[in-house]
Design a binder for these strands. Structure first.
Lengths: 231, 231
DNA sequence: ACCTGAACACCGTTCAAGT
DNA sequence: ACCTGAACACCGTTCAAGT
């Protein structure tokens, strides 16, 4: 086979040249594999076969690095959500966004930890627009849309942060099942006089499904929105 | 005046002896004054006129220190909430808990940042019981109480984390008004084609009240609960 | 038993020196 | 212009040595 392209000189090899994209990509890989604590500039530099200082030519700080990684994950979630015209489609789209975020954070727990930390970061803004933009089709009056979108977003953030925390303790210690069983045991041993509620729902904690419970919360807010329209 | 008590010997003075309570108290003072970044074992030791290592005789780690400070703040909030029997009293109690948490986090932003970080920490457990324990009087069926309490708790956590983040950027940079105005400006300049929702609600962002918006979210979940009962 | 504070094993970030 | 990697200014935590 004749060689149509001139042979690359090893010394001018740019395949592994540094770039923001490659840095963020490597950061995501480390975050997924080792967790937030594993992402250090030294580890990142080692993986990219360079010095720690080189990274600062493309990324201003560790916070910016985390923000960019977070934005990337959220963009991917929102890309899949279809348009909506009818109330049914609107409710479905919002559920899809919420579930997409839930699954993304299950896969990348550090997103759940970082999203609430930097206010109005790009990913958050896109998420807010995505949710708010479906409320019209849901029939929510304009004057109520700001509060409604904010309530949905805050609920998602709360679950996100919580799930990220669960994932972190899981890495450090026992698996999910064990952790849930231990917590349920502790609740059952609480005095029914001082902790009637926890004592009662301990059984539910042991067998509940995080994803189902998450959806129930979204439905609760959506039901509140629907009730407000004819109230 | 005759001296009824023997004069204390300076060398046996125990008024400033170290104790977990004094350490947590000092930690809260530093956290409120300097923020999370200001709380270091060196700064804490300096304030308590001791060595950094001494603190480890009373507190196992920085995380435990933050957890104990957080628990203290939450206990104080929950102490003020009255019992409830009627649905109206139940709704009022839940609103009081939520508002109490909102104000406490406004005063101690680090609580909002730490509460979602350690899963099922004591403060969280107390909060969950407090909310769940009012759902009976609200008329929520037992089978729905676990999910309902969890939705309310997660919403509160989301707002808490968000407010803590806002407070942090406020300390670093501009005040709340300026930050809101800047964000609103940015939203108004977004293309109405790509960001119809944000473009539209930018005006509301500039004039909205965080506390009112927080309450609107709680009311939304409560409305959803009420709607579910006859649905 | 409790305290002291130097020491250890790290961090994020900077910056002179190289190419 | 970009990279290198030693150096700086910190951390949380440990631990021999003191009282």
């Amino acid at each position: 086979m004749t060689c149509m392209t001139p042979p690359r000189q090893r010394s001018v090899r740019r395949a592994d040249a540094l770039s923001t994209d490659r840095i963020v990509e490597a950061a995501i890989e480390i975050l997924d594999a080792e967790g937030e604590r594993g992402l250090t500039f030294r580890a990142l530099a080692a993986r990219l076969s360079t010095g720690a200082g080189a990274i600062y030519h493309h990324v201003a700080s560790k916070e910016e690095l985390l923000t960019e990684a977070t934005t990337g994950v959220i963009e991917r979630v929102l890309a899949d959500v279809p348009d909506s015209a009818t109330p049914e489609e609107g409710a479905r789209a919002i559920t899809l966004i919420a579930l997409g975020m839930f699954d993304a954070i299950d896969e990348h727990p550090w997103v759940g930890a970082h999203l609430p930390v930097v206010p109005w970061q790009p990913g958050m803004v896109r998420l807010f627009e995505s949710i708010g933009g479906r409320l019209d089709s849901l029939g929510v009056p304009e004057s109520a849309q700001f509060n409604a979108a904010s309530a949905l977003l805050n609920y998602i953030l709360g679950v996100a942060a919580q799930n990220a925390a669960n994932a972190r303790t899981r890495v450090a210690g026992a698996g999910r099942e064990e952790f849930m069983a231990e917590t349920a045991d502790r609740w059952e041993q609480l005095s029914p006089a001082s902790y009637p509620f926890l004592h009662r729902v301990a059984r539910q904690l042991r067998h509940h499904d995080d994803r189902e419970q998450f959806l129930a919360g979204v439905d609760l807010v959506l039901a509140g929105l629907a009730a407000g329209q004819d109230g």
